[in-house]
Every structure is written in C-alpha cells, then in structure tokens.
Deep mutational scan, measured.
Amino acid sequence: MQAFVKTLTGKTITLEVEPSDTIENVKAKIQDKEGIPPDQQRLIFAGKQLEDGRTLSDYNIQKESTLHLVLR
C-alpha cells in the first residue's frame, strides 16, 4: 500500500509499505529515499510519536495515510 510522509519543509515522500511493517522498517525506507539516518527520524501520526517496535497496523495506519517526519 502507499503511505505518505510529510517533512517539515513541506516535501511529501511516497512510500510503499505494508500494514505489518514496523516503524523501524518505515524509517529504513525513508533513509533509502532521503538519506536521513533512522536515529534522527521521529514519525508522528494522529499527534502520537510512533515507536520503532510497533507496526503500522498497531497504529491503525491505512493506505494513503500521511505520517509527519520530524528530525531530532
């Protein structure tokens, strides 16, 4: 499924993900596309910070959801 990641600069990245993907996995995909190390990434969805060990389905993130990427 497709999900979108919006950065603070307003850029939107499109990712191909599965509901079973972990947040860690998603961060690795963002690193592949953008070169941002996962340890600098914080992903926010519905106002919550997403934890590495959880999956997209844990957070009820469905296709075409938009996550927000904040860098630390």
Rank of each mutant, 00 (worst) to 15 (best):
E51P: 02
L8M: 14
R42L: 15
Q2R: 15
G47Q: 04
T14K: 09
P19H: 07
M1L: 08
A46P: 01
K11H: 12
M1E: 03
I36P: 04
K6L: 11
A3S: 04
G53M: 09
G53F: 11
A46Y: 09
K48V: 14
P19T: 08
N60C: 06
K29F: 06
I13Y: 05
S65I: 08
R54P: 04
D32W: 10
R42H: 13
V17N: 01
K6V: 14
F4G: 02
L43T: 00
S65N: 09
S57A: 14
L50V: 04
E34H: 08
K6S: 08
D32I: 13
A46H: 14
S57C: 05
G53K: 12
N25E: 12
K11Y: 13
R42A: 11
K11V: 09
D39N: 12
K33M: 11
T22K: 09
T55N: 05
D58G: 03
T7H: 05
A28R: 15
T55H: 06
A46C: 10
K33V: 12
M1R: 04
A46I: 06
L8K: 10
Q49E: 15
K48Y: 10
V26P: 00
P38V: 15
T9N: 13
T55P: 05
A28P: 00
T14R: 10
D39Y: 13
N25K: 14
I30C: 01
T66P: 06
P37I: 05
E16G: 05
Q41G: 03
L43M: 03
K63Y: 08
H68V: 12
E24V: 07
D58K: 02
R54V: 06
T7C: 11
P38F: 12
S57K: 12
F4T: 08
Y59T: 01
L56T: 01
G47M: 04
N60S: 08
D39S: 14
T14C: 09
E18D: 11
D32V: 13
V70H: 11
S20Q: 11
A3R: 02
T66K: 06
F45Q: 03
S57F: 10
R54I: 05
I36L: 06
Q40G: 06
Q2K: 14
Q40E: 12
A28H: 12
V5A: 02
L50E: 01
D52I: 05
D52Q: 05
V70M: 11
N60A: 08
S65M: 09
Y59H: 03
L8W: 15
T55A: 06
E51T: 06
T22F: 08
Q62F: 11
Q62P: 12
E24C: 08
S20C: 10
V26N: 00
V17L: 10
N60T: 05
I23P: 02
A3G: 03
P38I: 15
T7E: 04
